[in-house]
């Protein structure tokens, strides 16, 4: 475990951070909690000579669950524990709680989790291991080791936070070279679907905050992992639902841990808007979502099982919503599980 020497910058403002990123363009990484970037550095997955630490920038620490604004440096631990988050954004709190172990969640940040490096058995290895394997598409090589003759990389988005935030329709504030911009969270991820890119942020752009608008959505998050703790997801699913007068006006589903980026199932859920949630919707949705899942064998568990569990979660979570709905149309009862 050996990191090449690097310079550590500790800017106090976003402007300063972006300027530093521009100055060292091509040889720089932002450092948030460090739980992803540091192991990567020590394994030689990233070889940059400049790290820009974001923890000293007050604006990135904004934590306003009432208004639904969370700075990128918000720790996973605070998302998990904050009573207001727990009440208003159930799936967010469940997902934060399901990540790694408690000590890791102290350091790990919301921004870091959203932009976490995609994972693959052939990539998340030491420099020695990868060299002995002659590299892969994502690092030091030219061939994919998972899919023979694969021309793209299948490394998996393995964060916990994107699915719930996507299901709740989050937007993100981004500080780029042309200034501040706000866009849907979906846009953070590469549409091309190549695992070499963990996200679609241009180099030097900085994720500032995540915004959630509607605190009245029902939401759930369920995660498949090998053990009770502390593993990465090998499949996860989040749902956000809202009905007004018995008709869906918000219905979103997002899947993590399966593809190179979190998958948002808008084309499956959108047609149901304006209609009531029902068994028919559940059946059709589960089937359509199942058809969208194509995991490849780059994590420990069998791919057909990962697909099965994710659709199973979807079915039980939707059923739970339906059961609740039949009692009263309400929100914010915790749903989801980690298994």
């Amino acid at each position: 475990m050996l990191a090449d020497p690097f310079e550590l910058h500790e800017p106090a403002s976003i402007a300063e951070a972006v300027a530093l990123a521009k100055r060292y363009c091509g040889d720089v990484r932002f450092l948030a909690g460090g739980t992803d970037v540091l192991p990567g550095l020590f394994r030689g997955l990233h070889t940059v000579r400049h790290l820009i630490y974001l923890g000293r920038i007050p604006e990135l620490h904004v934590f306003d669950p009432i208004r639904g604004v969370f700075g990128a440096q918000t720790s996973m631990a605070s998302l998990e524990r904050d009573p207001v988050v727990r009440q208003r954004f159930v799936a967010v709190s469940l997902a934060a709680h399901a990540a790694a172990g408690p000590a890791l969640r102290t350091s790990a940040t919301l921004g870091g989790n959203l932009l976490v490096d995609t994972r693959c058995t052939f990539y998340d290895q030491s420099r020695f291991w990868r060299e002995a394997n002659e590299g892969c598409l994502k690092a030091d090589g030219t061939e994919c080791r998972v899919v023979s003759q694969g021309s793209r990389c299948y490394a998996v988005y393995s964060g916990d936070m994107a699915p719930p935030l996507l299901a709740l329709g989050a937007t993100v504030d981004i500080e780029g070279l042309e200034g501040r911009d706000s866009k849907p969270l979906e846009d953070l991820y590469s549409p091309g679907g190549d695992g070499r890119l963990s996200h679609a942020l241009p180099e030097g752009a900085l994720l500032v905050a995540v915004r959630l608008r509607d605190p009245n959505l029902w939401s759930s998050y369920s995660k498949l992992r090998a053990r009770g703790a502390p593993d990465f997801p090998e499949g996860s699913i989040a749902i956000g639902i809202h009905e007004t007068d018995g008709r869906l006006d918000h219905f979103r589903i997002a899947v993590g841990g399966i593809d190179t980026r979190p998958l948002v199932m808008n084309e499956i859920t959108r047609p149901w808007l304006g209609k009531p949630m029902s068994d028919e919707v559940v059946e059709a949705t589960v089937e359509s979502v199942g058809r969208r899942l194509h995991p490849v064998a780059n994590t420990a568990l069998l791919t057909d099982y990962r697909k099965h569990v994710v659709t199973r979660f979807l079915r039980t979570d939707l059923a739970r919503y339906l059961a609740l709905r039949s009692k009263e149309l309400t929100s914010s009862t915790p749903a989801g599980r980690v298994g």
């Binding site: 460090g34 540091l38 630490y53």
Partner: peptide, 22 residues
């Protein structure tokens, strides 16, 4: 890689992996 927890220390009262902390 931060998986075993043997290096846990408190930083300002919160548990943190000292092997994942500069």
């Amino acid at each position: 890689d931060g998986s075993c927890g043997a290096c846990t220390v408190l930083v300002d009262g919160a548990p943190q992996h000292s092997c994942l902390t500069l």
